[in-house]
Write a protein that binds this DNA or RNA. Structure first.
Lengths: 347, 347
DNA sequence: ACTGCTGATGTAACCGGTTACACTAATGCG
DNA sequence: CGCATTAGTGTAACCGGTTACATCAGCAGT
């Protein structure tokens, strides 16, 4: 590959459609590349006349700077890598929206990638980012701490979201799952609910584990009857969980799903079974995806987009100053709506 | 910026923490950079012994190739630019998921960006992609054809999704809105519904316009009473539309929202008003976001993720062969569920 | 022994920007 | 008028890879 002919120092003739480079602009404006570069980057020490000639040449040639080349020489990419697990639904879009907002506000682009497989796959994905991005935002609630630590490129500043604490401390943002869970359980208990079922997330997931553990504790603290069934954060598994509970004849008067998706599935299944919400069963979720408000779902507000913004802001911060101190906590809050409180119309 | 000292040809001493380069590896393995490069890229003509020494050096130094430099010399980025309007909710996540799947299957990453503002902003966003990506996927249902054409970098292969036809034909994928709309209207008519209300999308949006126009035609063809009210593709606007209709005393027996989000809002508002679905009012949407299935919403299945995959596949195609022929159509299909057909349990 | 070939390796010119340093001309000042 | 300063510009060495071409050793064929 690499262009056609190699020994054409002045590049008087490029292929017919070759993209214009800064040297082409310099030639057309009868100036040196240095002056062109300075003019384009808004330096002061360029005469007005030179500026004008350059502007004309840029326009004539339809010149657009080559960001890759610029990155190489500046050692600065103006891009951030975002590596996420296989997120679904509104959580994903809200999170990305938040990151994009903060990133583009600061002139950065987002390079997106998913952990598709496990272990070594993760390392590859992260390696592929080296030399394209200035920093990394990693959400890996499914990876073990050491697995993740081994995969993270050493030279790249990284912000970790909701990952297990590793020995080497990267800056991280942790969602305070326990506080959110406690608020929900207290709320349900205050309403007089006695038999709570928690639909948990996938077994290997860090957030799911924290939420389930917090549920166990909170239920014990309030002397309630608690049961945990397993889901996978998808709507479908919320429906399935209810179906199982009903077929087993389990008694319960409140469902607390580990995320809103499963809560929505549960609501649907409960209604299909002829049960009323919150009359027969109160339902609560976690995340507060935008839809939750419209469905009247009581849930734990995570302010997902804000979480994304914070992650980016944090990363940009550690890019400028050398300061890369410890963890931050992201505090969620309870939002009560009509799936637990019938009268109140918080919608 | 640019590293500390400039005249240190052999780079015997870099800064303490500088990232290892291929030259460092070469030095440590007592070989030339050419051999190292060949070995790392899996060429055949490298002796087993050299290979071993290189592998050792790579490991010792924790060397990771610099993708940016590689891109520059290969004129190939292994990244695709994705520029979207301000999408919300599940449409966004499904679409991105589809693109990511196909991209990563082929070893490409996605560089994400939003049209935040209008006009010239769009041009800037697209320019910023030059030199970082090998091609562009652009969804701009809110831009005029010439506006978009003017902003697209000339040298970058681009695939357009649901944009107005420009004079210069880029490869494009068009969602067949009219077919989908007709299917819904026919379905509602077949069910005996007479007074249809279409909740349209934002005025400047191409898809919204096509759907509204198709609605008008289909309603006329079936000799129904049709009315169009305006929304903005958000859940909230679906709720608002119903509120307005009810307060005006408008009579209707079917709601057809221009997307699922608004349909969900409408369902919520109808239920809050004590109306039954589909008893009093049938409801249909457009998109078939994953949630629609769980809510039993009759809608037009767009196979959003597949649309994303197709876009990427199409783009990769036009990168390899020179072939970049005309448009493709993406055909949607009607999915009937319980918001229009009570008995049938398609859930 | 000489030529022709093959396989492994090295040298250095790229990719397209940025910028340290050198240089020239014009200006300021004693 | 002479010298220091400054404003504007040019040259070429980077950034970290890839690879065309040159080189050189080893071996087969005659």
């Amino acid at each position: 590959m690499r262009g056609a002919r190699r020994f054409c120092p002045t590049s008087a003739d490029k292929g017919p459609m070759a993209e214009a480079t800064i040297r082409d602009v310099a030639m057309r404006a009868q100036l040196s590349v240095a002056t062109v570069s300075r003019a384009l980057n808004g330096f002061e020490n360029v005469s007005g006349e030179a500026r004008a000639r350059i502007a004309a040449a840029v326009k004539d040639l339809g010149y657009v700077p080559h960001a890759g080349a610029r990155s190489l020489s500046l050692s600065r990419n103006n891009a951030l890598g975002v590596v996420l697990p296989d997120l679904h639904g509104e959580f994903f879009s809200e999170f990305v929206r938040g990151m994009d907002r903060e990133a583009s506000r600061n002139g950065y682009l987002l390079l997106l990638s998913n952990f598709h497989g496990r272990g070594d796959q993760a390392a590859n994905v992260l390696r592929a980012m080296r030399g394209r991005v200035d920093g990394l935002i990693v959400m890996a609630p499914h990876l073990a701490a050491d697995e993740l630590a081994a995969s993270l490129p050493k030279g790249l500043p990284s912000v970790l979201i909701n990952t297990r604490e590793g020995p080497d401390h990267h800056p991280a943002i942790h969602l305070d799952n326990a506080t959110g869970v406690r608020a929900v359980v207290d709320h349900l208990a205050d309403l007089g609910r006695k038999r709570l079922v928690h639909i948990a997330g996938p077994a290997g997931n860090f957030d799911a584990q924290e939420r389930a553990a917090a549920f166990r504790q909170a239920v014990a603290a309030r002397k309630l009857i608690g049961k945990i069934v397993h889901g996978d954060f998808e709507v479908q598994s919320g429906e399935a969980a209810i179906a199982t509970l009903l077929s087993q004849g389990t008694r319960f008067d409140a469902i607390f799903a580990a995320n809103d998706n499963m809560a929505i599935g549960a609501m649907q299944a409960l209604r299909d079974a002829g049960l009323t919400i919150p009359g027969d069963v109160a339902v609560a979720g976690f995340d507060d995806i935008p839809l939750a408000r419209h469905l009247g779902l009581t849930t734990v507000r995570v302010r997902i987009a804000e979480l994304g913004e914070r992650a980016v802001a944090r990363l940009l911060d550690s890019l400028s100053r050398e300061e890369r101190t410890g963890d931050e906590r992201h505090e969620p809050e309870l939002v009560t709506r009509s799936t637990t409180v019938a009268d109140r119309n918080t919608k």
